[in-house]
C-alpha cells in the first residue's frame, strides 16, 4: 500500500472543509428549489402551446393560486378578436389628477399591495409647459390645483415597441389587436425591456407579490392580470381580459370626469376615431418613433 503523505491528508481535509462550507452557503436555496415544479420548468412558450397543453397550464396555475393564496380563481386564455385594433385617448383638459385610475388598476390587475403598485403613474404638470422635467408623480394635496394639469402615463402599446425589440427570449410581443403582452412563464427577468421603455410602463416583480386572498380579483387571464411570479416583468395590457370580451378597461370605467376614451381604431363610428379626427391630439415623445396607441388631447 502506498504511503499517504501528510500533504495529501491535509489536502483531503481542506477539500472536505471546502465542500462542507459550500453546502452550508447554498443551504437557504432549498426553499427556492422546493418551489420549482418540473412542469413549470419545462413549459413551452405561449405561442407553442397546443389547446390541450394550454388547458393543463391554466389548471396548474389555478391550483397554484389556490394553494398559495387560498382563493379559487378562473384563469382564461382570452385571444384577440379579428378586425379589432385597440386605441386609447386621454383628455388632458378635464383630467383632475385624482388617481382613481391608478387605484382601479391595482385592484383589477392583482398588483402587489406592499409597494402600492399600479401600471398608471399620474404626473402633476406645470401649466404652460409639456416638459416632464417640470412635472412630479408625488403630490399629496387636494386636486386639481389651479396652476397645474394632470397627465396619467401607462403603457402606450407602441406599434414600434422598443421593449419587444430588445427582449432576448421573445417573452414579450405585440398581439394582432395591438396589445403588447408578456408571457410571465417565459420571461427570464433580465429587465432589458424596462431599460428600453421610454414611458416607464414596465414593472418588475422584485419580490413575490403580496396580496391577501380576499383582495384577489378572481376573473383572470394568462397574459394579463393573473397573480405574477417573482422575478419576471409585467405591464399594462389595457385589461385585455376585459376588452377582448367587449368590456372597457378598469381605469376608464372608474374615471369620474370621463377623461378617458377607448375603442376600436378600425371602427369609423367609434368615439376614439372621432377624437383622433377632431381634437388637438399628440403622443408622448413622438420624436423617438415608437408610434404609440395611447393619445393625449386637449378640449380647449
Amino acid at each position: 500500500m502506498p504511503e499517504i503523505s501528510r500533504r495529501t491528508v491535509l489536502k483531503g481535509a481542506g477539500a472536505m472543509l471546502g465542500a462542507a462550507a459550500f453546502a452550508r452557503a447554498v443551504a437557504p436555496a432549498s426553499a427556492w428549489v422546493a418551489n420549482l415544479s418540473v412542469d413549470e420548468f419545462l413549459q413551452r412558450h405561449y405561442k407553442e402551446l397546443s389547446r390541450d397543453e394550454m388547458a393543463a397550464v391554466l389548471a396548474r396555475l389555478e391550483a397554484e393560486t389556490e394553494e398559495k393564496y387560498g382563493v379559487r380563481v378562473q384563469i382564461q386564455d382570452v385571444r384577440p378578436q379579428p378586425g379589432v385594433q385597440f386605441g386609447y385617448a386621454l383628455n388632458l383638459s378635464i383630467c383632475i389628477g385624482c388617481r382613481k385610475c391608478a387605484e382601479a388598476c391595482q385592484i383589477e390587475n392583482n398588483h402587489d399591495r406592499r409597494t402600492n403598485n399600479s401600471y398608471i403613474r399620474v404626473l402633476e404638470m406645470q401649466k404652460g409647459s409639456l416638459d416632464l422635467e417640470r412635472g412630479t408623480a408625488i403630490y399629496e394635496h387636494a386636486v386639481p390645483q389651479p396652476d397645474k394639469f394632470y397627465m396619467p402615463v401607462q403603457c402606450h402599446q407602441c406599434d414600434n415597441a422598443p421593449c419587444v425589440k430588445v427582449c432576448p427570449v421573445d417573452a414579450t410581443w405585440k398581439e394582432s389587436d395591438g396589445i403588447v403582452v408578456v408571457d410571465y412563464n417565459w420571461c427570464i427577468g433580465c429587465r432589458y425591456c424596462e431599460a428600453a421603455c421610454p414611458y416607464h410602463a414596465r414593472r418588475f416583480n422584485w419580490t413575490a407579490p403580496e396580496i391577501r386572498g380576499e383582495e384577489i380579483n378572481p376573473d383572470q387571464s394568462y397574459l394579463s392580470n393573473r397573480v405574477r411570479p417573482q422575478g419576471v416583468m409585467e405591464k399594462c395590457t389595457f385589461c385585455l381580459h376585459r376588452i377582448r370580451k367587449g368590456r372597457l378597461p378598469a381605469c376608464l370605467e372608474v374615471c369620474p370626469t370621463g377623461a378617458r376614451v377607448f375603442g376600436n381604431l378600425l371602427d369609423p363610428d367609434s368615439e376614439i376615431r372621432w377624437v383622433l379626427a377632431n381634437k388637438r391630439v399628440f403622443v408622448l415623445k413622438e420624436e423617438l418613433g415608437t408610434r404609440p396607441r395611447f393619445f393625449y388631447f386637449f378640449d380647449k
Binding site: 412558450h45 432576448p168 420571461c187 427570464i188 427577468g189 433580465c190 416583480n205 417573482q230 422575478g231 419576471v232
Partner: peptide
Amino acid sequence: DLGRPDKLWHM
C-alpha cells in the same frame, strides 16, 4: 442579475 435563472435555457 437575472430574476429567473431557472429560465436561462430559454435563451
